[in-house]
Design a protein around this nucleic acid. Sequence first.
DNA 1: CTTTGTTCATAGTTTTTATTCATCACAAGT
DNA 2: ACTTGTGATGAATAAAAACTATGAACAAAG
Lengths: 310, 310
Amino acid sequence: MNRMTLTELRYIVAVSQKNHFGLASQACFVSQPTLSIAIKKLEGELGVRLFERSSKNEIRITEIGQQVIDQAHIVLQETRILSEIAQQGKDPLSGTFKLGVIYTIGPYLLPSLIPKLKKLAPNLKLIIEENFTINLYQSLKQGVLDAIIISYPFAEPGIETVPLYEEPFVVALPRDHAWNKRKEIPPEDLAQEDLMLLGAGHCFRDQVINACPNCMLGNSEITRSLEGGSLETIRHMVAAGTGITVLPQTSILHSYHDDERLIDFKPFKAPAPSRTVAIAWRKHYPRKETIATIRETIQASPLNGVEILR
Amino acid sequence: MNRMTLTELRYIVAVSQKNHFGLASQACFVSQPTLSIAIKKLEGELGVRLFERSSKNEIRITEIGQQVIDQAHIVLQETRILSEIAQQGKDPLSGTFKLGVIYTIGPYLLPSLIPKLKKLAPNLKLIIEENFTINLYQSLKQGVLDAIIISYPFAEPGIETVPLYEEPFVVALPRDHAWNKRKEIPPEDLAQEDLMLLGAGHCFRDQVINACPNCMLGNSEITRSLEGGSLETIRHMVAAGTGITVLPQTSILHSYHDDERLIDFKPFKAPAPSRTVAIAWRKHYPRKETIATIRETIQASPLNGVEILR
DNA sequence: CTTTGTTCATAGTTTTTATTCATCACAAGT
DNA sequence: ACTTGTGATGAATAAAAACTATGAACAAAG
């Protein structure tokens, strides 16, 4: 079982154009016998004579030969299109890229990242999903997402990560809070206060709990009613004087609204608790250059108060 | 410069369907390394990664890979169509066949031949051209016609002929002609009469002149005015008593009209002059079977009074 | 009637490509 | 650690495609 070849199709097209085996073979950069044999083989496979050869004078294309050559043109045209498709796909900054970001990073990172990427890679269609780490990981593993931006610790088999930056946590107090004269807050002091945290599932919640011993002892009803809320919601509640919270440094950049005047941000006492933000992808993901571009874009002009990690 | 292969396209389509190199290789009846290497080569040529391989679990198709595979489907589909076209063209009794016939044979041969061929080869589209031998020959040589039916002598370089049948000439007299009691006419007697002949260009004219010595001595004005006429026109004139003529035997079969009663047909004295009707084609013409069918059809039920030649 | 030139076909050989078998490296589960 | 399933790799082999040289057919010119 021997099948027809694109080369053979190129040969018969050349013969049909030159009306001459010798000239056609030159046009194909092969010797004349090569072309003769290839066409003979193709004719044998198809079971039809494509050309009428007369010693002198020109070649004549048979009726069926003309139909076959017309179709060969179509086949070759489609292969050319295939090459073009691949050619366009070569650009790592083209096509669609699906990026997942956890809830507690997205609102602070994306507003600056997306316009920069759009400028740097106008042909890259970026699709963003915000979700919990666990859901992003599932989507990444299944191939629904191309990369995700999460917070350490994050180590999964078959997934590679690179840290992007480290951002310290800060304490957010109402202006009239008793601590508003303090320069810095030791993490263990938070145990005394009504600390509002995000619901379960947010890794930021766990990180804060880890960083601040016993802070969950005074676990109030307010905290429970915050399940499903966002950091922004909690910030509003701080402004309203409901309690205090811990926020990532980068969220302060977004405090250009009214809350700003009603909230005091206090750094933690060194060593301040912090989180490491990283980008993760499947180990065998083929478009690593695209990820590198995103990574560089984030690190080239980092958000305020974070430390770039290389 | 190394080009993509249809086999490679079949491989990537198989992998996309099986999501598994091993299974795909089985589906293609090759070993797994064969398939791996072929795909690697194709990816190298296209400059894009088509599949994301993870050791465990299934293969994932990249975004660009999916586009390439979609296009590969199209290419393969078009090659299948090409094969089908060739398959249909295999039937020698399909397609178009252009047959040329000289003026003095067409009207007598074609009325019986065409229906027979239509029944025998319903898929064969027959196109008929009637013309002088010289014009038919030109068209045959140029490939405009596939075969021609002519009268001997006919020998041209690059053209093959096979005789079909031999038909005697007969003399056509008005009923009231002086010769109407004679059983047969010696060719040389025609010199005495007002013989009407076709115009120059008709080979039948030359054949009659050759067969009947001196018949052109009494070359009348009538004969000259017949330039451009047909045998049927001349026959009408015989019926009208204008003169006598020589006709091929097969034309009598068509004398079912009124002229019949007004014309006497007399055979020539043996050896009666005759013409050999033959079919001719280019030596390298590829559809010889089609010609054989036409030839057999003509010879299977010959016209009245002709002798089949093999 | 031979010679010459053109053209495609064929033979024999070489080079290139495709394929195979055996084995490796890797990651997941057990 | 061991086993299993996966694709990749290396060396050897089979298959194909390619080339050079030559042949056969034939038309045109001497």
